[in-house]
Design a protein around this nucleic acid. Structure first.
Lengths: 298, 298
DNA sequence: CTGCGTCGATAACCTGACGGCATGGACGTC
DNA sequence: GACGTCCATGCCGTCAGGTTATCGACGCAG
């Protein structure tokens, strides 16, 4: 019997939420569409998956049994998908390199040149991601190797080599009183509202809020942004301040946004990361990275 | 990214056949439909899966990678499906009992009565299958327990208890010269065309052709049938002869078809079979079967 | 008790995907 | 040069999936 993974995702969302309306929102479809899909799944299986009540949708035992299996099924499909894509790029001698916007720096050009020297018959496919995806596509297998900032989600499943370390600064509205200072103690920022990364970026978000370096004070969230542009705009408009690597001041100047050094907060590390599977081509790329790392990281 | 399992089956068929036209036949769709589906899968993945040539469709490395994963994915989905259905029937206190047409016999009624005595709050759902499905739905988890004939596909994944043994007879056209004999030596049937079960029934087919008891002589296939009715018609019309359990002569008399005892061929065994997972309700059903088994099997 | 908010289900409609048939184009074979 | 065997393409009918608007059931607050 055939199913679409979409149906399985729909079902899983309803089972988790216990509520059609909310599940529909989460899936970006209308509630009637979800109603129909769930009914259709039940019809296809010949099994009642939910008990409907005013309280919402409660999974039956069969529904629970199915819900327990779905994450595994979807994960397996995802893995097959990634392996297929990576087989394709390997066969085409294409190395897929991801980098997060803020990690890109002057040495990228030289790294690629060095790699091309080592593997003249390979081509490099560069994919830039904004910081809504701090693993630069490595976590979901869309790239083979990534230049990014530590920490990132899925870091424990990857090999990592640090390329450089740079201090974290703060970006704030030029009109902000603290902008008058030449350097700002991090302690003075604890009570400021912050412009944060989305919840789902996990430890990346926490790192840039420096949650661990506030002595337990909860960070205040001014607003959440997904792209560099949104981020700059939010800061300029005074929705909050945000930590950022020093180089950000050079790469992303913006009228209305001031960058200042911060004391009392740990520096940020840029690294190259790759899957733990010992591909010699990736090893060559990593070698090319290490040749060009900043002296500070050696 | 979403896919339909149908698309995966399509892809797998093409990868196996290496030929669109033949794969299309096997899948009971037209060749253009398959062409489109394969292209769509490639578009969805963003990966070329086949190299097209006059020789046919040759999988690329990516295609091979995907093809290697698909059987596992489909099997997992199938398992999830079976578990869901079985959870549903367990919750509804329904025991799903399959039996193949030819295994049903007079004791079925008594077995069910005995089971109902043991589990008054349970209901028995009987599902008869013809011999295109000799496991009576046990192999694909559509029933919890089955009354059937040995051997059957998937037998090694099940527990089995023999209920009765009966000689194999032969069914042939009344006009057939051998029908004149009161009992027919199996040796005399070796060169006869046989009415056989479909290829995909595996050892079931071989067993009823008695492939192992012909000293290596290849059986001749007169025609292939899927249902009891087709089978009887084929025999009456002289497309071939066929082995059948003795009781078949009582249950399926048919003008134009004669049944005769056969010497020199092993008898057939009727058994109860169930999944190896120790459900106490199933155990009660098996117990009810064993109480009513024929003396010959004890 | 009445009006409102929150559930899920239903109706009417539109679009696009899938499948079928007929046909085309490339290439090898007799 | 005609034919057979591949896969691709064009055209068309059908149906599944989505959307919006609306309904019925129920609980709760005024």
């Amino acid at each position: 019997m055939d199913v679409d993974t979409r149906l399985l995702r729909y079902f899983a969302a309803v089972a988790e939420e216990g509520n059609l309306t909310r599940a529909a929102e989460r899936l970006f479809v209308s509630q009637p569409a979800l109603t129909k899909q769930v009914k259709q799944l039940e019809a296809q299986l010949g099994v009642e998956l939910f008990v409907r009540s005013r309280a919402g949708m409660v999974p039956t035992e069969a529904g629970d049994a199915l819900a327990a299996r779905i994450p595994g099924l979807l994960a397996d499909w995802d893995r097959a998908l990634r392996e297929t894509r990576s087989a394709a790029s390997r066969a085409a001698r294409v190395l897929r390199v991801g980098f997060v916007a803020s990690a890109a720096n002057e040495s990228t050009q030289r790294i690629i040149a060095a790699f091309t020297g080592r593997r003249p018959d390979w081509r490099v496919d560069l994919r830039q991601t904004d910081w809504s995806e701090p693993s630069a596509g490595l976590a979901d297998g869309r790239v083979d190797v990534a230049l990014l900032r530590l920490p990132f989600p899925g870091q424990d499943r990857s090999n990592v080599a640090v390329l450089l370390t740079e201090p974290r600064w703060v970006a704030l509205a030029e009109s902000h009183p603290l902008a008058a200072l030449a350097r700002i103690p991090f302690r003075d920022l604890w009570d400021e509202p912050f412009v944060a990364a989305p919840q789902e970026t996990g430890e990346w978000r926490d790192y840039w809020l420096a949650t661990d370096e506030r002595d337990g004070t909860e960070p205040r969230i001014g607003t959440v942004t997904r792209t560099t542009d949104e981020w700059l705009t939010a800061i300029a408009n005074g929705y909050g301040v945000a930590l950022a690597p020093e180089s950000c001041a050079r790469f992303y100047p913006r009228p209305g946004v001031a960058y200042r050094p911060v004391t009392g907060v740990s520096p940020s590390r840029v690294a190259v990361a790759w899957a733990k599977d010992g591909d010699p081509v990736i090893a060559d790329f990593v070698r090319s990275c290490l040749e060009h790392r900043a002296p500070s990281a050696r």
